[in-house]
């Protein structure tokens, strides 16, 4: 991976939501890029537009105006299936509430994105097992999510996001549902993968302790990027 190569770039992006007859501008004139190897935090109070920004960067939403470039390509004219394929191959997503598939075991959850990519069962499960070992869940690979703690579930979710070796991993408040110690462990884990595998991480939080541990911080307020 080339360092400082732009993976995602947002240019003059606005995002407006319709709330009945009113319009709510969640993002205003946002310009931001995520480069390879970045370990970035999006910080700001509730309602500042953090989640909206991450949704646009993770290509699960589209801007009202402005442009989103992924690896230099404007995604405006991409069809839904192509954007879905991009997410599958290039982006890992970690959710605040872990969002694991409840009927699948930890290893099946982690292997799932690889199987979406039509990788063989053997390869998928070998990779999933290896990565679960890396996140410290070697003894829990056959447990279903309801038998795992919040921290363990979030580790599974991180493993799921990483298993396809994406360009960037985006996490929307990955620690907010966890206690501060576990939250710190999750951030350390993400930092470990950022350093060891040179994967870019972009996540949101409003925990000052976490904000102080990262390289780049984007401050948001009322839909604007303040720095």
């Amino acid at each position: 991976m080339n360092y400082n190569q732009k993976i995602i770039e947002l240019t003059n992006v606005d995002k407006t939501y319709a709330l009945g007859n009113q319009e709510l501008k969640a993002l205003k004139e946002v310009n931001i890029s995520v480069e390879s190897g970045d370990f970035m935090v999006v910080a700001g109070p509730s309602g500042s537009g953090k989640s909206t920004l991450l949704n646009l960067i993770s290509l699960i939403d589209v801007p009202t105006s402005g442009e989103v470039h992924f690896c230099g390509e404007n995604i405006k004219n991409f069809c839904d299936n192509r954007i879905t394929a991009l997410r599958s191959e290039k982006i890992g997503i970690v959710f605040q509430q872990y969002n694991l598939i409840p009927v699948l075991s930890a290893i099946e959850n982690v292997a799932f994105p690889l199987q979406i990519q039509k990788k063989s069962k053997k390869e998928s499960f070998e990779k999933a097992e290896a990565i679960l070992e890396e996140v410290g869940l070697k003894n829990y690979i056959h447990q279903r999510p309801n038998n795992l703690s919040g921290g363990q579930q979030q580790r599974v979710a991180i493993a799921r996001a990483m298993v396809t070796e994406p360009e960037v991993i985006i996490a929307d408040e990955p620690t907010s549902a966890l206690d501060s110690k576990t939250g710190q462990e999750i951030v350390e884990l993400m930092k470990y993968f950022n350093r060891s595998k040179h994967m870019s991480f972009l996540f949101s939080t409003h925990d000052p302790k976490i904000i102080n541990t990262v390289d780049k911080v984007i401050h948001m307020e009322d839909g604007y990027i303040m720095n």
Binding site: N81, T84, A85, R87, I93, F95, N99, I101, I116, Q117
Partner: peptide
């Protein structure tokens, strides 16, 4: 619904 959203987010296409 949220599970469907998750599946879509991690790369499963609609028709699947």
């Amino acid at each position: 619904t949220r599970e469907i959203g998750t599946l879509r987010a991690i790369g499963l296409i609609k028709r699947r």
